[in-house]
Write a protein that binds this DNA or RNA. Structure first.
Lengths: 248, 248
DNA sequence: TAGCAAAATGTCAAAATGACACTAAGCAAA
DNA sequence: TTTGCTTAGTGTCATTTTGACATTTTGCTA
């Protein structure tokens, strides 16, 4: 799984991935802990990321690196942007790590960040390479990260929120069959506040992005919820077109 | 104006700028023509862009490069994203140019693109460095560009359109005093189709992003238009908050 | 069979949208 | 001085969308 000996490593460019998952309760983000170095005990979480190869596109690099560190693959990653501040690798604990992990630890490195939304239950992350552990952390618990990853993470959250306002969301985060309550919770988790249940359902139904199925929850100690699935046609159309504001 | 001997050039990372301007008629984009090399006569236009230095941030690099090539400065540039496809520098005419302009013409280079909207009349671009000429071209006339600049340009136009839908626009493209017809034309230029005049005015006024001034056009052979200015407070608030869809 | 828990549903007033056509003002030419 | 040209500016109405709000339904469990 280590390609370093077969490819020409680009020592000035890395990729980092912000992977959001949803467990029907909270919005979470996939983070790794790096294997400890020297006598540095501090162990900030980081986003999965690494240097790119010179013979791969940025998108491919993101896919590869994510796979190498967490074993997740075939995830639709969207680019968030490039981060290249001069001080992005300047925390003492990060410098120590770079010294023991990089051929040119002092090199200036810019990173291209990617983000994705996934159905948390459909993936089973496993740490490898320099990742000691991988875990899903509730987004609201993330207070600090290695490198400039907190900045990247915050940007990704903003982007997610911006996206939510102009197109439907959830296709990649929910199972094929889901309930409107689950979709509702997902939106609330991203928006960060309560949304009126009736108005939410009305909107989703009017936009025709969901189809009601002839199947209900079973074994729940309350009125069972109806299952829905996404109306793929309409969903995609709205992703492309965006919700209309003011006719344009 | 050539910093190359004072700074450490990063040979793997460049920046490119998509500068949109508006002349009250058409939406335009700032392009340069490179000084010709060898016996290559083909002269595709390009976006102003060049390699970055290792001691500057990406944002700074974009500002500097834009200044060096076109003499434009103090422009608020927003990042569009990174472009790093393996074949982005593979057109024959581009290879010839790289050979005569770059220390490592075969090097893999990714670029970080920026875009901005400016009041075309407030700037007077002047070519320098490897730019032979600089000009404003109507966006609809752009059919091909050097490198992968057409792809970058198209992405920038999409981004501009996306932006228009969720926040007010025009603050940087119009003079301090402007007429609602000018704003209307600007929107039509970006959206690419006609927008109902009355509904447009109603919306702008209701959003309170413009303030009516006590001043009219003079010397026009028709009913003079009233001048307006932006309501900075409300404008900024809406830029941050975005237009609401569905309460979130 | 009583109680619990979450699902599901409807109404109404207010605001926003979209479609649509005529009058007003200033200048220029006859 | 009158007529014509050109763009600015304005209002209405029917329809749709929003936002606020409370009760009933269903299935399970004790």
């Amino acid at each position: 799984m280590n390609y370093n000996y077969e490819h020409d490593l680009n020592k000035g460019i890395s990729v980092d991935c912000v992977i959001f998952g949803f467990d029907f309760e909270k919005l979470k983000v996939l983070v790794i802990r790096r294997k400890p170095v020297e006598n540095i005990s501090e162990s900030l979480v980081s986003l999965p990321g690494d240097l790119i190869f010179n013979d791969e596109n940025l998108d491919q690099a993101a896919q590869r690196v994510l796979k190498e560190l967490t074993d997740l693959e075939n995830i639709y990653l969207e680019q968030l942007g490039a981060f290249g501040d001069l001080d992005r690798l300047s925390k003492p604990s990060d410098i120590a790590w770079l010294r023991s992990n990089r051929a040119q630890p002092e090199a200036r490195v810019i990173t291209v960040a990617y983000y994705a939304l996934v159905n948390l239950n459909a993936f089973d992350p496993k740490p490898s390479n320099f990742a000691e552990s991988v875990s899903w952390e509730p987004v609201e618990d993330i207070k600090s990260m290695a490198f400039d990853h907190l900045e990247i993470f915050n940007k990704a959250r903003e982007e997610l929120y911006r996206k939510l306002k102009i197109q439907p969301i959830g296709f990649n985060l929910l199972p094929k069959k889901f309930t409107l309550s689950q979709l509702h919770k997902l939106y609330e988790a991203i928006v960060g506040r309560e949304l009126d249940k009736r108005n939410f359902r009305r909107k989703m139904i009017k936009l025709e992005i969901v189809k009601k199925l002839d199947e209900k929850q079973k074994g729940v100690p309350h009125k069972p919820s109806n299952f829905y699935e996404f109306h793929v046609e309409n969903y995609k159309r709205l992703v492309n077109k965006g919700f209309d504001n003011f006719g344009f």
